[in-house]
Design a protein around this nucleic acid. Structure first.
Length: 496
RNA sequence: GGGAAAGUAGCUCAGUAGGUAGAGCACCGCCCUUUUAAGGCGAUGGUCGCCGGUUCGAAUCCGGCCUCUCUCACCA
């Protein structure tokens, strides 16, 4: 008899009862002048300077009720935390107290009263007025806590992700993680804005995609009757803006990749990409260090963090290491002296593969990923990737087999990718065309983007470009191990 | 895509080497004016993820499916 429907019906009946008392269970507004955390934090100082107790007006959601006949303690949750209320019949009157007894955990109330400490010393609002602001009809998960130990935590991850509104209300630390996320993004924006980067918005729906190797999502525009792609990176349009004379430009936005999902991959994710004219990949390294170090200090007050059991220090400057030297140091392999066949053996031994024809540069990159990547715990810029790894980057003038590129690795994972951007239009057209020919063996290679090449042909100044996966940066700085815990609404299959 | 674990009351979880289920909290009733995992007394509440099979009988055994978690693979 008492399934969820009955629980809900009971509360719907209460709405009727409350209305019959002449009370609107869904009024229009309430004047809130005080918040839980402030009341508690300011209590001692206020008490020192005043004889009369402070009068406050608070509003929040009822999270616990301890009813004792003619009086009750209850805890309400507002945007700054929790505070205890003391609701006594003799203080708020018989009729209001009768209404109060019909309230449930999950209801939202406004309370006016004075702030005092209880016998056991808890700072409490002694209610002299109480207003029902919203009646809840769907029961909340009940999470209890004593001495910092949590009981009956709302721990089913599926339910948490599908019902983030509940998760935010009852799971300790969830709201804080998302507040940190926004703080990190604001810090990044503040740094870039301070360096005169212009923040822009570029299209998400595109007739052609590029800037990375990834399978795109497709959609259809009805009135144009054409296929459109969701962007897989921000690069092609930001570079057009560099050509257009916006010398420092960035975007923080969603990109979409139609690939597998796991602890570090969600189909939609947030990228930072920035481009700076007249700069190169060395400038991008300096900037990357500043973005990470400053964000870390903003969150932790220090450059030292712990992640996955590793102590990591983000204090700049960070080590810079050429890819082939990293392979030498961490895998004792001198890739440049190996024959093609020897490289194939090394890749096969670790279960790797090369798509299509064997290309030496891609094999070196593969060997790095298989043998070295996971060992890069402290922040390190791995530089000079083989030129075949991307057609959008300039080769190094000292050794044209390698690129002026870096990837930032921390804790064995890639966090940033940057180039001295390719701006030789003849080279660009050739490499993009040649790469597009590989589409028959590698479905993730982008098609040729003629308009983009024409933009480069117009003349793009020497430019440094940088991309950072914001979700992973947030994971690193919040200690979360799953990307789903730093996304408010991670992608889920439909609930059956 | 592979492997492992899981899905039982609104929430958190027990359980039974096959005989249609239990606890705590929540909810409902009663008592209680300083509680804080409040307490006391009482009551209600479940197609035990879905579909099929075996069986006199399935929540339990078998098969398939769905969802989620972890993990491996894939992934600039």
């Amino acid at each position: 008899m008492e399934d969820l429907g009955k629980l809900i019906q009971t509360r719907i009946d209460k709405i009727k009862t409350i209305r019959e008392m002449g009370i609107n269970p869904f009024p229009y507004n309430y004047t809130v002048t005080d918040f839980s955390r402030d009341i508690i934090d300011n209590f001692d100082e206020y008490s020192r300077n005043n004889v009369e107790p402070k009068t406050v007006s608070v509003a929040g959601r009822i999270m616990a009720v301890r009813l004792m006949g003619k009086a009750a303690f209850c805890s309400i949750h507002d945007k700054k935390g929790n505070i205890q209320l003391y609701v006594a019949q003799k203080n708020i009157g018989d009729s209001l107290y009768e209404m109060f007894k019909h309230l449930d955990i999950g209801d939202i109330i406004g309370v006016g009263g004075i702030v005092k400490k209880t016998q056991v010393g808890e700072i409490t609002v002694y209610a002299d007025s109480l207003t029902l602001l919203t009646k809840n009809i769907r029961p909340l998960p009940i999470v209890k806590e004593k001495d910092g130990e949590v009981f009956d935590a709302f721990s089913d991850k599926e339910l948490r992700y599908r019902n983030r509104h509940l998760d935010l209300l009852v799971t300790h630390g969830v709201k804080e993680t998302f507040e940190k996320r926004i703080k990190i993004i604001k810090t990044v924006k503040r740094i870039l804005d301070g360096k005169d980067f212009l923040e822009v918005e570029t299209p998400v729906l595109l007739p052609i995609y590029g800037g990375a190797n990834a399978a795109p999502f497709t959609t259809h525009h009805n009135s144009l009757d054409m296929m459109l792609y969701l962007r897989i990176s921000l690069e092609p349009y930001l570079k057009r803006l560099i050509v257009g004379g916006i010398d420092r430009v960035y975007e923080i936005g969603k990109c979409f990749r139609n690939e597998g999902m796991d602890r570090t991959h969600n189909p939609e994710f947030t990228m930072l990409e920035l481009y700076q004219a007249y700069a190169d990949y060395n400038d991008m390294m300096t900037l990357t260090e500043e973005l990470f170090e400053t964000s870390c200090i903003e969150i932790h007050g220090t450059t030292e963090i712990e992640f996955d059991g590793h102590k990591i220090d983000l204090k700049r400057p960070w080590r810079r290491l050429k890819m082939v030297d990293a392979i030498k140091e961490y895998a004792q392999i001198d890739v440049e002296s190996l024959s093609d066949d020897e490289m194939k053996v090394l890749i096969k031994k670790k279960g790797g593969e090369i798509k299509g024809a064997f290309i030496r540069g891609l094999a070196i990159n593969e060997i790095f990923e298989l043998y070295v990547e996971e060992k890069m715990i402290q922040p390190v810029f791995i530089t000079h990737q083989p030129l075949e790894t991307t057609p959008l980057c300039k080769v190094d003038y000292e050794d044209e087999r390698y690129l002026q590129r870096f990837e930032l690795f921390i804790n064995g994972h890639e966090y940033a990718n940057a180039y001295s951007e390719s701006n030789d239009p003849v080279f660009q057209r050739k490499t993009l065309y040649e790469q597009s020919l590989r589409r028959d063996v590698d479905a993730e290679v982008s098609p040729m983007d003629e308009n983009f090449v024409q933009a480069i042909e117009t003349g793009m100044p020497p430019t440094g470009g940088l991309g950072i996966g914001i979700d992973r940066m947030v994971m690193l700085l919040t200690g979360e191990r799953s990307i789903r815990d730093v996304l408010l609404f991670p992608t889920m299959k439909p609930d059956k």
